[in-house]
Design a binder for these strands. Structure first.
Lengths: 145, 145
DNA sequence: TATTGTTATACTCTATAACTATA
DNA sequence: TATAGTTATAGAGTATAACAATA
């Protein structure tokens, strides 16, 4: 019995949640494949996606955004920097702080990767226009803070 | 600019997809915390969730379901077996094949973990009943094969 | 010979704790 | 003293290739 069929007995919220979970499970291999197309690990891709060219982050900010310890970020950033996708720049106001800035090459690769990521998967693409709008509207309300 | 706001310009499908992506991103830390409540890694939890008591899998079937190489599964299964949650049993028809069977302790822990996982997150719980049904219905159509 | 699963190896991610440089 | 980031260390996940047992 799948999560979704079990959840059917517990009401719409539980079933919707179970269906979302199934959706995530189906998409995860696609994300891993997409990252490896660009020769990035999932963590590297996640980090790069957070580093908009106009919004450099510090090491600790990136650690917080990735929900992991700061010591991990050193390695992840090392690998991105070794590939020339980002650079560490000391902050002006406090030389302990490093600003992570995307290089031109990094911004270009980041943009191409995000374009691919934004392509909706078949599950969404094949919905009717009305269903696509309904999904968008409900998710907007769900994620509104 | 977030993925969702960028996607707004490209129509409902792209924005719905971006919102789903944001949803996954928000939920991931919750899943990791949930797994570690049971002292399981994400991979171990995923593996255990796939091993229903009435549906043992072989090593290769589990590798396929986890979308990873069979050699990884050896280690993941080793750790679950060391904790007494599952056992390897040689299949009757072919002694090369190992059937992964959940123990009583494993089934009990698995059931408790799945119950926790099935609890819908706040984002869904606080939707109106009509929105919950709408979300469920659209997702049913999206995931139908 | 072919297949199932394991072992060997190497790299990445992860956390904890100790450390360096700066504040 | 306190903070930002690094290094040291250890455990887990991942893939590739070589291997053993079985078919």
């Amino acid at each position: 019995m799948t999560a979704a069929t079990t959840a059917t007995k517990r009401g719409a919220a539980a079933e919707a949640w179970a269906l979302l979970f199934e959706f995530f499970t189906r998409e995860k291999p696609r994300w891993a494949a997409l990252a490896s197309e660009f020769e990035l690990s999932m963590s590297q891709a996640h980090a790069l996606s957070l580093l908009a060219p106009d919004r450099p982050l510090t090491m600790s900010e990136l650690a917080h955004a990735l929900v992991c310890d700061a010591s991990n970020v050193t390695g992840i950033v090392d690998r991105l920097e070794a590939r020339g996708l980002i650079v560490r720049r000391p902050a002006e106001h406090d030389r302990r702080v490093k600003l992570l800035c995307v290089t031109d090459a990094g911004a270009e690769l980041r943009e191409r990767a995000l374009q691919r990521l934004f392509e909706p998967p078949d599950e969404i693409a094949r919905l009717s226009a009305a269903d696509q709008r309904a999904l968008r509207d409900v998710l907007r309300r769900a994620l509104a803070r």
